[in-house]
Amino acid sequence: MSILVVAEHDNASLISGTLSTLAAAKIIGGDITVLVAGENAGSVVTEAQALEGVSKVLVADNAALADGLAENIGNLVSSIAGNYSHVLTPASNFGKNFMPRVAAKLDVMQVSDIVEVVSADTFVRPIYAGNALMTVKSNDTVKLITVRSTAFDAVEATGGSAAVEDLAFSDVFAGSSFISRDVTLSERPELGTAKIVVSGGRGVGSKENFAVIEGLAEKLNAAVGASRAAVDLGYAPNDCQVGQTGKVVAPEIYFAIAISGAIQHQAGMSESKIIVAINKDADAPIFNIADYGIVGDLFDVVPELMEVL
């Protein structure tokens, strides 16, 4: 078997989901090639070469590939996908955006968001916000797969010494262009990979009050997360949303503060190792899945917590 992993990166460094995707590729087994599609992404190529288990790094360097536009990445991947038994990429915004295009071009039914590799053609994926796990067998000749990063432990970033090969790209789609990016800057660890996540919900009450959540996160060197309600109300930026339609996280400790625990929120955090809930409503559903709960007002409990930490 020969597997292509489409790397996610920002032209400067690899995004961690790529390492988890490689872990899934290793379980499938076979020769692994990594594709770095971008512009002036030399440092990413160097990183990819060093990854454990990678035998080749394909590099497509083109201004049209710089910003992850789905039409261009999709065209590029479609042009080579037929050479592989599997094409994998993270089930991130990047992967979700282009991979179905490859599926349409190859007339293949993609397997989205896998959490387990059963065998080279059989995979487990969550459906209904994770309330059911479906095992599917793909009969397509090329298997197109997006991988849920939290379900696979990242491969080692060192130890490999893959060869590099250039890949030409000219099939630029004229209808779409990149205009601007508004990236949320944070000194906190990345939400998807942080050891501890501190999330706030609607009960936090305002953007100003959200500083309480950020304060605790800072103290714990944790990432900041939020419920959809908190994002909708503008307390936190959209990239903080945890849940069925946001990010999936699985840290060592997840703090759900003033979050009721709707199914859609649970979908993004129920795989966390330890869940701590702080909520003034003793009947909030979040307590049904929390390992440790404190029934109380967050504005009393969090300052107390800051003191004893």
Partner: peptide, 16 residues
């Protein structure tokens, strides 16, 4: 194209 082998409930998390 995909054959559904099985659909299962996820492991339930016990309340703490």
């Amino acid at each position: 194209r995909l054959e559904v082998v099985s659909v299962a409930a996820p492991a339930e998390r016990a309340a703490g």
